[in-house]
Each structure stands twice: as structure tokens, then as C-alpha cells.
């Protein structure tokens, strides 16, 4: 049962054949139903090729063959503004991990300097990728801080709502993804994202965005930006795991989201947020 109906098994390395070509859709639909009931359990076998398996082993994470069930997780992200030092390590790590094209950003860091709260000084030179230069004299601001930004993976996301072809979607584990094989590149989702998290990939001509490092988190690894953060300002957790530290903080401490008035239901929470942040 498990081997026959698992959509994610036998995916060798980077070459990903459509698992569905082998099985009739009915069986899998049935299986999914059962999976939701817990009968099928972890039918989702980790898509880990030889090389990836080796790397994952080196990283001390569960080896190849470990099963991943997207219905059993709900990923959340937590950013502590008071800890961020604005080094841009996250931006550089994200760029390398996900081959983000230059001058486009899946994550970026903004610097806020506030003396007059109606006119805060904000900058993000090259998304903070190359660090921040020293402030000019008189522009330090009475209150100053860094705000790391990523896709908020909104529960009621405007971007997936208006994708005309179903290429933008919310995965069962709460990650907003773009199917690069179906995206027509209309750019409507880019217009619809209130946070500026999406862009049209200049080479692939499809919408591109933060994936919560789906290839990493499904293997038990933290996202590249979380792994790179030297001060623990970025954290990653599972809202469906009650013992998870991040999900506990989200559940018990005052947190904030960006543009709450839009009611997009962001899965990215902020600690120590200031009202000037947009």
C-alpha cells in the first residue's frame, strides 16, 4: 500500500518524474482521504536523492527514506526585531540556497530610523544583501531598528486567491508556493501581494517567491535564512506541534503581523514591532 500509492516515493535526485503517471488518481484520492483520517499515516516519503541524502546525513538530519506528511505540519515563522543586527546573512544565504536572481529578493532586511513617526527614514540597499552603511550624521534617528521581511505565507492570501490558473497555491502545511510549470507569468499575484514578496523571475518568466525552503523544512532542516541568522532573530516552527518553541511563543506572547488591517492572516509573526513599519 505504502509503496504503491505514495506520490512522493522514488523521486531520484533532481530528476522528478510525475509520480502520478503510474497510479490512477482515484487510488491516491482515496489514500489521501485516509491519510487525513490518520489511517494512511506517513505515506509521503521524503524526496531525497543520493546526493541530498548524503548531505542530509552530513547535516545530522534524518536519512533517506524518512517520511514527510504535509498534512501533519503547519509552518510558522517568528522574527524578533530587537535581536536583528542587520548583517544581511539571511539575504545572502537565501540567494545561494535558492538561486535568487540578482536585484530580486525572497527575503530582505529594512532599516528604520525614526525621529518623526510620520516620516520615518527607511532604506534597504540591495535588500540588505551587502550590509548597511554607517548612518549620516543627524540621520541616526531617536529610534532605530532592522526589520527582516519574507513572504508572510498568509492563510487568506490575496496572491493565491487571484491566481487565474491555480499555479499559486497554499500547500497542506501552510506554505505558499508557485507551480513553475503552470504559472503563465501574468504578474497579477505580484500586484496583489501587499508586502512586495513576489516578483517575476527575469529568466524563467514566472512568479517567484519565498518557499519557506520547502526542500529543507520537509527534511527537518531549518530554512536557509533561519540557519544563517547569527543572533537568532529569525526562527521557524510548527504550529501543529504543541511542544514547538516558536508555536508556544506565538500562542502565548504578544506578537504582531505586517499590515494587519488587510486581514491576510500572515504566518510570519513579529516580536518587538513598531507602528511605523509597513
Amino acid at each position: 500500500m505504502e509503496d504503491k500509492s505514495a506520490p512522493f516515493n522514488s523521486v531520484p535526485g533532481m530528476d522528478v518524474p510525475s509520480a502520478s503517471s503510474e497510479e490512477p488518481a482515484m487510488t491516491r484520492r482515496e489514500c489521501l482521504k485516509r491519510s487525513a483520517q490518520g489511517a494512511c499515516g506517513a505515506i509521503f516519503v521524503l524526496a531525497c536523492g543520493e546526493e541530498l541524502g548524503a548531505l542530509a546525513q552530513m547535516a545530522g538530519t534524518p536519512p533517506e527514506g524518512e517520511k514527510y506528511d504535509p498534512f501533519k505540519h503547519e509552518w510558522v515563522y517568528l522574527i524578533d526585531i530587537s535581536k536583528c543586527i542587520g548583517c544581511g546573512s539571511c539575504v545572502r544565504a537565501c540567494e545561494r540556497e535558492n538561486n535568487v536572481p540578482p536585484h530580486y529578493f525572497r527575503t530582505w532586511v529594512e532599516r528604520y530610523r525614526i525621529t518623526d513617526s510620520e516620516h520615518p527614514l527607511v532604506d534597504s540597499p540591495n535588500g540588505g544583501r551587502d550590509g548597511f552603511g554607517p548612518e549620516k550624521h543627524g540621520e541616526e534617528g531617536r529610534k532605530a531598528f532592522f526589520v527582516p521581511k519574507i513572504c508572510n505565507h498568509c492563510k487568506f492570501s490575496p496572491c493565491t486567491q487571484l491566481c487565474p490558473v491555480g499555479a499559486s497555491f497554499r500547500s497542506p502545511d501552510g506554505v505558499m508556493l508557485v507551480d513553475e510549470e503552470r504559472c503563465i507569468g501574468c504578474g497579477y499575484c505580484v500586484q496583489a501581494c501587499p508586502y512586495g514578496s513576489r516578483f517575476i523571475h527575469p529568466v524563467k518568466h514566472v512568479a517567484s517567491k519565498c518557499t519557506f525552503c520547502y526542500h529543507r523544512v520537509t527534511k527537518g532542516l531549518p530554512t536557509a535564512c533561519v540557519a544563517a541568522c547569527p543572533v537568532g532573530a529569525r526562527r521557524f516552527g510548527d504550529a501543529k506541534d504543541p511542544d514547538d518553541e516558536v508555536s508556544q511563543i506565538v500562542a502565548t506572547q504578544p506578537t504582531h503581523v505586517l499590515k494587519p488591517e488587510l486581514l491576510t492572516g500572515p504566518h510570519c509573526r513579529y516580536l518587538g514591532m513598531s507602528m511605523e513599519v509597513r
Binding site: 523521486v11 518557499t211 527534511k219
Partner: peptide, 12 residues
């Protein structure tokens, strides 16, 4: 598409 995202190589 989920399986395809999972198959992306891990670098870090």
C-alpha cells in the same frame, strides 16, 4: 508540484 519543490537540492 510539492514533490518537485522537495527535490530541489539542499545547499546549506
Amino acid at each position: 508540484a510539492l514533490a518537485e519543490f522537495m527535490a530541489q537540492p539542499v545547499k546549506h
